[in-house]
Design a protein around this nucleic acid. Structure first.
Length: 305
DNA sequence: CTAACGACCTGCATGC
DNA sequence: TGCATGCAGGTCGTTA
């Protein structure tokens, strides 16, 4: 589910139900996800007021009034679910893995719900992650960016410090394909398989091109392409592929605007379509799928060089 | 140092 | 119908 636009969308959903609210109850259903949960996670969340949110790359940070921040990564399959409790909230801990409402009605967790939080105004927020590649940690708010998972991350792509100049510097001398370089969170934060493909298409750059050949004019096309595709995707509420993205259950809509991702064999928006003869479509065999470092890459071999 | 690869997990679509 | 296979929005740690 989660590249930058999806994480931004989820974070905004969480902000709507959590910001300014007190967590009156929290519970974990297992020891951890990708890594063990921090010691005493549920206890350290209980009673805390969520004072604000921010996103860093694909990570969400929920600032608490306890001096700590909750750090969440959705991994491949993580999502946040929010729903109203059935009645007024009373502190009652049900059996392991089961939340109960004020009338004692059990609200069993849905499958793969690993962490639940309940607010004073009666909203239940769950972290659901079937593949358990996600992660949760607590970090001192004053030193958020020093966290091991955040330190060393590249610039935020929508900020001004992600520029043709800075990207050129980051890519200088790199002999890896540009596709792999853009997936490297130390180069730029928040891109994943979808938006790398879409940005390279817009910049008309082949994903196979070596990163060291990007500095200069190509970086001048690539940076605005990255910014534009991310901004449009955020505006559409992200992309929904196999899972729901938004905390309110609404689907993102950007998947309808993919130019190349998951469109193998279909014509790209710049080519009329596969076909013989002269003209704008000649030599076009539609969107190609190749495998780079074990992951699918989609691109148009005619327009992307 | 860099780049490639396995590992971590479950669910789903596909094909025999 | 059942079963095997491959693939999926990520990224960390190990190996070469």
């Amino acid at each position: 589910m989660p590249e930058l636009p999806e994480v931004e969308t989820v974070m905004r959903g969480l902000r709507a139900v959590l910001e300014g609210r007190r967590i009156v109850r929290a519970e974990t259903m297992r020891e951890g996800l990708r890594w063990p949960f921090p010691e005493g996670l549920a206890g350290r969340l209980t009673g805390a007021v969520v004072t604000g949110f921010r996103r860093r790359g694909k990570y969400m940070l929920a600032r608490l009034d306890t001096g700590e921040s909750l750090l969440i990564h959705l991994g491949m399959s993580g999502r946040m679910v929010a729903r109203p409790m059935a009645g007024p909230v009373v502190p009652f801990l049900g059996p392991q893995g089961v939340f109960s409402d004020a009338r004692g009605h059990n609200q069993p967790p849905e499958a793969h719900e690993h962490l639940v939080m309940e607010t004073a105004d009666g909203t239940r927020i769950g972290f659901v992650d079937p593949r358990r590649f996600g992660s949760v940690d607590l970090v001192p708010t004053a030193a958020e960016d020093a966290h091991k998972l955040l330190a060393g991350m590249g610039p935020e792509p929508l900020e001004v410090d992600f520029s043709p100049t800075s990207l050129s510097t980051a890519l200088a001398g790199k002999r890896t394909p540009i596709k792999a370089a853009l997936l490297d969170q130390r180069v730029v934060a928040g891109l994943g398989n979808i938006y790398v493909a879409e940005a390279l298409f817009r910049a008309r750059i082949s994903p196979r091109r070596l990163a060291q050949t990007i500095p200069g004019a190509r970086a001048g096309r690539l940076v605005p392409a990255v910014k534009a595709v991310l901004a449009e995707a955020i505006g559409a509420g992200g992309s929904s592929l196999r899972d729901y993205v938004r905390a309110d259950g609404e689907l993102g809509r950007f998947q309808d605007r993919f130019s190349v991702y998951d469109r193998e064999g279909q014509p790209c928006p710049l080519c009329p379509g596969p076909g013989p003869g002269p003209g704008p479509g000649s030599g076009c065999t539609g969107v190609a799928r190749i495998v780079q470092s074990g992951r699918s890459t989609f691109y148009c071999a005619r327009t992307q060089r």
